[in-house]
Design a protein around this nucleic acid. Sequence first.
DNA 1: GTCGGGGTCCACCGATCGGTGGATGCGGGT
DNA 2: ACCCGCATCCACCGATCGGTGGACCCCGAC
Lengths: 206, 206
Amino acid sequence: MIRLVIVDDHPIVRGGLRDTFADAEDIVVVGEAGDGAEGIERARSLAADVVLMDLRMPTMDGVAATAALRERAPDVRVLVLTTFDSESDVLPAIEAGAIGYLLKDALPDELTHAVRAAARGESVLAPSVTQHLMGQVRRPGAGTLTDREKQVLQLVANGSSNREAAAALFIGEASIKTHLQHIYGKLGVRDRASAVAEGYRRRLLT
Amino acid sequence: MIRLVIVDDHPIVRGGLRDTFADAEDIVVVGEAGDGAEGIERARSLAADVVLMDLRMPTMDGVAATAALRERAPDVRVLVLTTFDSESDVLPAIEAGAIGYLLKDALPDELTHAVRAAARGESVLAPSVTQHLMGQVRRPGAGTLTDREKQVLQLVANGSSNREAAAALFIGEASIKTHLQHIYGKLGVRDRASAVAEGYRRRLLT
DNA sequence: GTCGGGGTCCACCGATCGGTGGATGCGGGT
DNA sequence: ACCCGCATCCACCGATCGGTGGACCCCGAC
């Protein structure tokens, strides 16, 4: 029997998860928590096998909680279940010691399978997360924007539209779009707003 | 006769400006420079009345050059002429001692008038810049996003579309749009990408 | 010499965003 | 009692963006 603890700050989400695992005869939800600190306490006192961990939570977030659990209760497997799959969420969570990373659009079936896999010590990743990870290894130089790309990103961060950025660099609008596509690919994002965010996180922008 | 020095790293822009002032009988362009350090030197050695200063330049930017000029040649009026009007450009430039702030979409006529005004010690600001400044005084609490607005901005920075952010916060897409409009107003930007940038600059985002 | 990466450009399309001008309800402050 | 800030929601529109699948040129490395 797999002893599961659910950590998520939304009661509604917790309810949905509880229902999901009600059908699984080999999984029992032994506890719930609304933030990271509480989650750590529950996981330890209830002798959890697997913790289903949200990332964005008040007071103590999922990454910090995961890291703390790895330290204080190394036998507990932490399975991240969150809404976001940007690199800035995925990589810290993996580094912190999460054994799996699923997105909240996962089907109930996928969820129960993932919990069983986690209990066996196997890793389960959402497809888009897998891509991010592959991107990290496939391209050792990934995250290295060219000078031109940095210029474009800086202009976008300063409020330029594609047209304005093109004018500022004396090139065509199409080139700006191409540069941005390359930037999205390298940073693992889908739009200019999160590209700017990643730019600041990686200290590419001022 | 007003002695003018042009500081801009693009030769083409310098050329255009030179042409612009060729028609003004009371203004003579006595020198040009391609970066801030050079601009300071020219402004002093050529006894400039007014310096037309670009902000984004290699090696020494316009803000640093303006501050240095105020220090070492307080009689020289610095008139900023740049492409950008985000708060993070405007405020430092004004603080550094610029007497005016124009955008590069200004008409030649506006430019010559502004140079004459600067020579007389009067301030000329581009309309959108004036708005930024007024925003600074009118709202002492400006730049203070509400908790909800910070949540929205954080989600946008993490790559959420409006729809996704709405789902994450359990509210409607229309509310996300409204929050974003408020955020744009408070941060003095026009789109989500530069809102994210301002968020990082003001340390509202992680 | 050719292969790959960087930079530039094109067309087309659907999706999303930004702008505007509202409206409602709640709570705190005067 | 009233007003204002905050949060929520609506509709409509044009502008912009993101996705795709190319293309060309230049240059340096192998």
